[in-house]
Nucleic acid binder design. Structure first.
Length: 903
DNA sequence: CAGAATGAAAA
DNA sequence: TTTTCATTCTG
């Protein structure tokens, strides 16, 4: 990463200090390194990763790293990173997957606290579930090792050994990327090549086509264009910028490709699109590349455009022009057949934009675009639809295609779907949506701008959302996006955006478009066989994304939940888009440097929560919906997936990076993607389950039973019945734990007077049920700080325990903490149960809740108690947001309550 | 940057 | 057995 070929340094810390900068970097692939050098910080990593892939390809083709990979990796990346990060263990995977949930539940809780909770959860987790994570971790590790044959866990020691820079670096790189391996290994391993090769190859395979093709195209185009650009043609201008960023574009492409996790099929649409694009290009500006592009390349054109736009954004003035040009290009591409028409149109816009370029104009446009925005999605869908006629059957379609490419492509890729069939259906829709030609242009522009801004990620996310939400989302929009936003459980991520109240309208439009997309997606989904499973889950997940939890767990409350979900989903969707819109204007308006703009925008978007929310939602959704089913299929992920992942992942990366801090998500390279996929497939347990568990535990503890630990069933399964089972399991586990901890229990406090309070933490926005908080209870039950681990030196201090077994001061402290937590958390537990059904949204009502809590439910609540709680929650909600009718909620809650009671 | 957790690997 | 380090991110 860091090093990336060219300017890699930039990236993170460059060499960071000797060791790793700490950045969060996931294990993205080193491959990317090449490209991005210039770019900035955030993207750098991503880009690099993406780029890496390319290199990888090269490497594969040749000796491996040969040039690209090897060089880059070795010299730069390695040096900078040194070694890949060690693969996460099961627990870490679990943490990664659930941390967001925990945080949501307990917004105030800092990570450490979250970690503790997670540890508790982990402890409670059923063996089966745990096993899943363990297996995943193992796979991950195995894959990693394949990639990095000689990888040593402890670099430090090793470091000294080799030349500091290289050897170490090598190790460091991301394991994932193959290329690195070879180089790394060079010293060490000689061995690896073969095993590694396979995975790598996969990478390479995917990459080369795409990457090479794209990059080549881009470059060629750039050159050609550059010359022209200068002249003025809008479209071409874009190219020039592109040239600089080509690398990036390549990355993007990769990313996109990668993003399409699963199937290559996605290419099909792309291919068509590309073809259209190619035509356009050919007709227009640069002739060269387009024809060559393979299907895989197809996307590339779009990407290129996007990239271009992005690049332009980065670059200052030129960038602007470029951006416009990019838009034009896109339009052109789309229009391909209609190129002429398009050109005419484009020319106009281009003239405006290009001349003024700038953002000034952009701002105005943006506003206009907002209106149009809805179209975009539509367009996207349409684009996908137009499979057959690469050139684009109708102008409208073409336009649509333009927009869509990004999104559609990604989606498609993921699915791998076969192109045509899917596309066809969609196309009609697209056509519908498409407004006037002009609008199309606008939309295109919009998209481009978005891209430039960094919306890319956002765009993607929206897509996902769309996908997820699918039918659901459609309805949802209305509700109260505002509510959630406001609520924002977690301040940070999700909601920065808040600003956007006004945007709601837009959102609605967008949603509609999204909906369409969704439909498209849905259609597509079926197509892909393998993916179907995954996809579906994903789809589901997505919807939830917006929402906090997916409901699976909470089956009972459904009605309300559903509504809420919808709303939630909406929000998320809206958010991103909103964000984009908002951002755009801002960024556009005052763009600073291109890059900064882009990065900033992107970040903002992400930070705002679009990304995060997405991620979180996704996770939840997956976990909820998928849970059981998905978890297992990892199966092949090692080689295949890796390969795949490598190929596909890009999107996520962006997200990650951008968000990296926040969520992390995808970011990785292909591997990562795969990894992520798998990761996502891992069951996510809703807090509820834990809560229940914890609750149960607490109760049980009291009882003292000795029930065996068995775990009942993993949560995965079904909701209602499962709940109970889970509950029991949990209880059992807890018992065990408690037994272990024995003395500590006291603190726990089964009762938790506070119970009522916590709902707020959940905040999360509305996540309906789930999020709420299981943790607390656990905390309560278990001594929070898991003292399990021996204390490390440093830790030891606080651990002191009295001989009695009672809390030592230290423990007392812990307990106190716990109590505090309890207040926050514990209350949740009970409430959570209720909540889950209820779904409260209070964003942060913790305070309020507390008051409520004072009322406190008894540890176990009677229905009445629950009802009260629910009522309170409702009230809160009403205050905040609104949307949810209290009465209705209450009704909804009833079932939930009942369920709780049952438990 | 420490630290909270768990786990895997290395010393 | 003890250390490192993987992830995440607040303070």
């Amino acid at each position: 990463m860091k090093g990336g070929g060219g300017g890699k340094e930039p990236p993170e810390e460059g060499e960071v200090s000797g060791k790793r900068p700490k950045r969060k970097c996931l294990q993205w692939h080193p491959l990317l390194a090449k490209k991005a050098p210039d770019f900035s910080e955030e993207e750098e990593e991503e880009d690099e990763e993406e780029l890496e892939k390319e290199p990888v390809l090269c490497a594969e083709s040749g000796a491996q790293e040969g040039e690209c990979a090897g060089m880059e990796d070795d010299s730069e990346e390695y040096s900078s990173e040194q070694r890949a990060r060690r693969p996460m263990n099961a627990f870490l995977l679990f943490c990664k997957r659930h941390r967001s949930l925990v945080r949501q539940e307990h917004p105030r809780l800092d990570n450490r606290g979250a970690t503790k909770i997670l540890a508790d959860w982990w402890a409670v987790l059923d063996p089966k579930e745990k096993q899943k994570y363990t297996d995943m971790a193992k796979e991950y590790k195995d894959a990693f090792m394949k990639a990095n044959p000689g990888y040593k866990w402890c670099p430090a020691t090793n470091k000294p050994v080799k030349s500091p820079s290289h050897s170490v670096n090598n190790a460091r790189k991301k394991v994932w990327s193959l290329p690195s391996n070879p180089s790394k290994e060079s010293s060490v391993a000689k061995k690896q090549s073969k095993t590694d090769s396979t995975p790598q190859l996969n990478f390479a395979m995917a990459d080369p086509n795409k990457m090479g093709g794209l990059s080549m195209l881009l470059l060629a185009g750039e050159h050609a264009l550059t010359a022209r650009e200068i002249s003025s043609s809008s479209s071409q201008t874009g190219c020039t910028d592109v040239a600089k960023h080509t690398g990036k574009s390549a990355l993007f492409q990769l990313a996109e490709i990668s993003s399409s996790p699963v199937q290559p099929a996605g290419g099909s649409k792309n291919a068509e699109d590309t073809s259209s694009l190619t035509h356009v290009e050919a007709s227009g500006p640069s002739q060269p590349s387009s024809p060559d592009l393979p299907k895989s390349c197809v996307k590339s054109p779009l990407f290129q455009l996007a990239e271009i736009s992005s690049s332009r954004s980065q670059s200052g003035s030129e960038g602007r022009q470029c951006g416009q040009s990019a838009l034009f290009q896109l339009a052109e591409m789309c229009l391909a057949s209609e190129a002429e028409k398009m050109e005419a149109r484009s020319s106009q816009p281009s003239g405006e934009s290009s001349s003024l370029c700038a953002q000034h104009s952009s701002s105005s446009r943006v506003t206009a675009e907002h209106e149009d925005t809805p179209e975009l999605p539509v367009t996207t869908s349409s684009s996908s639809s137009s499979t057959s006629g690469s050139t684009s059957s109708s102008p409208t379609d073409t336009t649509l295609s333009d927009l869509s490419p990004c999104k559609t492509l990604k989606k498609k890729k993921k699915k791998k779907e076969n192109k045509d069939s899917d596309e066809n259906p969609t196309s009609p829709k697209k056509a519908k949506k498409r407004h006037s030609p002009e609008s199309d242009l606008d939309s295109v522009m919009f998209t481009i701008e978005a891209v430039a801004k960094g919306a890319w990620g956002s765009e993607e996310t929206p897509k996902k959302k769309a996908r997820l939400s699918g039918s659901e989302s459609s309805s949802t929009t209305d509700q109260s996006p505002a509510v959630k936003k406001k609520t924002k459980p977690k301040p940070k991520k999700q909601l920065k955006l808040k600003d956007d109240d006004a945007e709601e309208e837009e959102e609605g439009d967008e949603e509609t478009s999204k909906l369409e997309d969704v439909e498209m997606k849905t259609e597509e989904a079926p197509l892909t066989p393998k993916d179907e499973c995954e996809n579906e889950p994903d789809m589901k997940v997505e919807p939830p994304v917006g929402v906090e939890d997916t409901t699976p767990h909470c089956s009972p409350p459904h009605p309300t939940e559903l509504e809420e979900k919808d709303t939630d989903t909406k929000q998320p969707q809206t958010r991103p888009e909103d964000r984009e819109q908002e951002v755009k204007p801002e960024t556009c308006g005052s763009r600073k440097s291109e890059r900064s703009c882009k990065g900033a925008l992107y970040k903002t978007l992400v930070s705002e929560g679009m990304l995060t929310s997405l991620r979180a939602n996704v996770d939840r959704g997956k976990r909820g919906s998928i849970r059981g089913s998905l978890s297992d299929h990892e199966g092949s992920w090692n080689d295949e997936s890796w390969g795949f992942s490598q190929a596909a992942t890009s999107n996520p990366k962006k997200l990650k990076k951008s968000k990296s801090k926040e969520e992390t998500t995808p970011g990785l390279g292909k591997l990562e993607e795969e990894f992520e996929k798998k990761f996502n497939s891992l069951p996510q347990y809703s807090p509820l389950t834990f809560d229940k568990k914890s609750v149960a535990v607490t109760k049980k503890k009291k009882n003292s039973t000795s029930s065996p630990p068995e775990p009942p069933k993993p949560c995965k399964g079904s909701s209602s019945s499962q709940k109970k089972t889970l509950f029991h399991k949990i209880v059992n586990k807890y018992k065990h734990r408690k037994e272990k901890s024995s003395a500590a229990d006291k603190d726990v406090v089964p009762t938790d007077p506070t119970v009522g309070t916590e709902s707020s933490p959940v905040v999360k926005s509305g996540s309906p049920c789930v999020s709420p908080s299981p943790e607390p209870q656990k905390v309560l039950d278990t001594p929070v700080g898991s003292q399990k681990r021996k204390a490390r030196k440093s830790k030891i201090t606080h651990l002191v325990r009295t001989a009695d077994g009672r809390l030592s001061p230290a423990e007392a402290e812990d307990k106190s903490k716990d109590q505090t937590k309890n207040q926050d958390e514990k209350p949740f537990t009970q409430e959570t149960l209720c909540n889950r059904g209820v779904c409260y949204n209070d964003p942060r009502s913790a305070e309020v809740d507390v008051t409520d809590a004072s009322g406190g439910l008894p540890a176990f609540f009677s229905l009445a108690a629950l009802a009260e709680v629910a009522a309170m929650e409702n009230v809160h909600r009403a205050q905040r947001a609104v949307s949810i009718p209290t009465e209705g909620q209450v009704k909804d809650m009833a079932p939930v309550l009942i369920s709780c009671a049952d438990q």
